[in-house]
Design a protein around this nucleic acid. Structure first.
Length: 194
DNA sequence: AGATTGATCCAT
DNA sequence: TGGATCAATCTG
C-alpha cells in the first residue's frame, strides 16, 4: 500500500477564499483528542459563510460578543449553541477582520455517517468550551490531510440548510457534499416539463 | 408537523 | 430588561 503523508492543516490553508477552503476540507479528517483518546472522521459535508454581506451568516449583523471569533484570524474554531440544544463547529477562514467560516455538517467514521452538525459535535464532544481554540496546533482539535484526493465530480453543491430567512443569500450553493462513489451525479439530463 | 431548549441580540 | 429568534434534532 502506498505511503501517504499526513499533514495537519495550518494557517495558510484556512487563509484562502472560503468557498475554496470549504471544498478542500471535503475528504480531510477532523481529529479530536480528549482524555479518553484520539478519534477522527472524514469530513463529508460543509457549508461556507462568507463575509459581512452574507445575510445567512451570524456575522452579517456586525461584530458581537458571539461572532467575534469569525472576525479573527483563520484556523480558529467558532463553536456556538443553536436552538438551545446543539453545538455547531466552524473553522474561521480568510484574513483577520473579514468574517467568514466553514461549518462542519457531516463526517464519516469508518462506515458510519454522522450526518448533521449537532450530531458531529455531540459525537466528538465539542462544545463552546472549544470556541476560540486554535485548530492549527494539533493538540485538541485539528484537521488532517491524509492525502486522499477528491475529484471535482465527487463534490455536490447545494443550498445551505436552515437559512431561508436570508433572502437571495439562501439560494447560494454554498453547501458542499462529498458524494459516495456510487452517488456521483449522473450527466445532466434534460427532463420533460410536467 | 410539533416540541424541545437556552444563549443571543435588539427594541414592540 | 423582555421577548423574538435561531447555521438543529427527535418523535410522532
Amino acid at each position: 500500500m502506498k505511503a501517504t503523508r499526513t499533514r495537519i492543516l495550518s494557517r495558510p490553508d484556512f487563509s484562502r477564499p472560503t468557498l475554496e477552503v470549504a471544498r478542500t476540507l471535503l475528504g480531510t479528517y477532523l481529529v479530536r483528542r480528549n482524555k479518553s483518546g484520539v478519534r477522527s472522521a472524514r469530513i463529508i459535508e460543509v457549508e461556507a459563510y462568507v463575509g459581512p454581506e452574507d445575510r445567512a451568516s451570524h456575522a452579517s449583523r456586525g461584530r458581537t460578543n458571539r461572532t467575534g471569533v469569525m472576525f479573527g484570524p483563520p484556523g480558529i474554531a467558532y463553536v456556538y449553541l443553536v436552538y438551545g440544544m446543539h453545538h455547531c463547529l466552524n473553522v474561521v477562514t480568510e484574513r483577520e477582520g473579514y468574517p467568514a467560516a466553514v461549518l462542519i455538517r457531516a463526517v464519516a467514521q469508518d462506515s458510519t455517517l454522522i450526518d448533521g452538525p449537532g450530531r458531529v459535535t455531540r459525537r466528538y464532544e465539542i462544545d463552546r468550551s472549544l470556541n476560540g481554540l486554535d485548530m492549527t496546533m494539533g493538540q485538541v482539535l485539528w484537521i488532517e490531510d491524509r492525502g486522499e484526493r477528491v475529484a471535482t465530480d465527487q463534490i455536490g453543491a447545494y443550498p445551505r440548510i436552515g437559512v431561508d430567512y436570508a433572502g437571495k443569500w439562501a439560494a447560494k450553493l454554498w453547501r458542499f457534499r462529498l458524494e459516495a462513489r456510487n452517488e456521483r451525479k449522473p450527466p445532466a439530463r434534460r427532463l420533460r416539463t410536467p
